[in-house]
Write a protein that binds this DNA or RNA. Sequence first.
DNA 1: ATGAATGCAAATAGTTTGCACCTAA
DNA 2: TTAGGTGCAAACTATTTGCATTCAT
Lengths: 156, 156
Amino acid sequence: MDRLAIARARLDAHIDREGLKRTRQRESILEAFIGAGGHVSVEELLRAVQQSAPATGAATVYRTLKVFVEAGIAGERNFGDGQARYEPILEDEHHDHLICTDCNTIFEFEDPVVEARQTEVATAHGLTVRSHRHEIFGTCTLREACPRWPKAGGRS
Amino acid sequence: MDRLAIARARLDAHIDREGLKRTRQRESILEAFIGAGGHVSVEELLRAVQQSAPATGAATVYRTLKVFVEAGIAGERNFGDGQARYEPILEDEHHDHLICTDCNTIFEFEDPVVEARQTEVATAHGLTVRSHRHEIFGTCTLREACPRWPKAGGRS
DNA sequence: ATGAATGCAAATAGTTTGCACCTAA
DNA sequence: TTAGGTGCAAACTATTTGCATTCAT
């Protein structure tokens, strides 16, 4: 079962659970969304969708992404550039980021201790964790450990 | 030297360095900003400033906050509620955030366990930690724990 | 004097919403 | 048939910008 199939299955479940409907737009948007990788803005996604379904309106993409988030397929990110970005959240592929500010390499990590501790902290404040964002910025101690050393492009 | 004095000193340095000017608005906004604590939205800050300087315009607050960020006095945060929030960054005071996505209340936290673990994770990847950003999103379990409850219900 | 800063209003940009029409179930 | 979905345009909201005026240096 590939990523698209996983997403589709989860969306189907959500659709049944909530009494929603299966439409060609939702299917097109889902395909474009999964195909896009990650960090897509609504504008980018709309452009992609319109390749296969030219009549699709922006409002539908906004509304559909909201459905995806509720279905647990998508996560919304705000990088402070004024527009929201979305990325697929399939399985439990959750990851945080370690960023080398010298060479811009981004490592992904997931630490059970941190995850568990987060829940404790949240609970202590009376909150139930829904999601989180955790980014650690640092510099490579060993240059060899830095795959892209010494060059590197790419924003996060 | 209290927080306001520290901020003022840093702003002064920035003003000299960049050839800017000292205006009553900048002073008023600085005072309101530092007095507000943290996580202020432009709207809130504007309201506060207008207590002492009623004629102040919103554009000035926006422009001034930008100056504060450049001066290293303020940090911009995006919690995904549609508006940017600013908080003072004096000394090396660091904290992370817990955000209730229902009522938008923001709690601050700093956890030694998480902090320590971060260092370990980074070291394991060959990085030296320089800074980090950690935000946990969740929902209030106990309504009473939510200062702003029941305002702003969950219809996003 | 002169260039930066301000206030206001108009302009943007991203996102949401009202509404008449369409369509899955 | 009937609630939900869609497209379009208008409405909103946060933020930016143009411009004439004011003010710091």
